[in-house]
Design a protein around this nucleic acid. Sequence first.
DNA 1: GTTGAGCGTT
Length: 257
Amino acid sequence: MSHFGRSGPPDITDTYSLLVLNITFRTTADDLFPLFDKYGKVVDIFIPKDRRTGDSRGFAFVRYKYADEAQKAVERLDGRVVDGREITVQFAKYGPNAEKIQKGRIIESFPRSRHRSRSRSPYRRHRDDHYKDRDYRRRSRSRSYDRYERDRYRGKDKDYRRRSRSHSASPDYSRGRGRGRYDDDRRSVSRSMSASPARRSPSPRKSTSPRKASLPRGESPDRRVRDGRSPSPRSVSPRGRPAGSRSPSPRNSDVDE
DNA sequence: GTTGAGCGTT
């Protein structure tokens, strides 16, 4: 098994990271280790995986101990077919040791005084080395990872923080206002979801057509619901939950939330 | 069980 990345970055003081792209989603560090280790001393191999699914993201980071070896691997493994897919090996630009790369200038660090026309690794991609190619490619990227990015973005709370700072002058006021509006919006979404007659209505299948025609937009109910619930939906605590005594119907509490 | 531009963790 792969013991890489099991205890975080082992040692990146003198290692050169290489980025391996275009690898298959099933390729693991163990598969790349022998391949990369053949061309030099591989210190560690890390493959970012999804937090939820745990699947590979399609690229891996290979850390070499020496730059010359890394460079060699880049030139030798770049374009190699692994698992039926042509992988792309190149030096990592961003990362924990990106600074070192610029400082060390591994690209030009050649043991043999061999002056090469192109110090940088020759990305011999397909003839599709166009410039606008990326735009069209980027589009496809948002297919199955869109939700992942969405979740990630939400988790960062970037927007929330920014807004908070903007109104830091009056946190109370802003919070109250922001909260109310936010809640409203959120409830709106919730309502939208609740609209699903799946579990809200236990038996709406018998009369779904008439109701639908009756409320094609849902504006009427919308206002009604907002007016009736806007004031203080959360302030109201109908469930005076008896801490000591357990509720006679635990299911009720579940339904509440 | 899918996907295919990109830059990473205990």
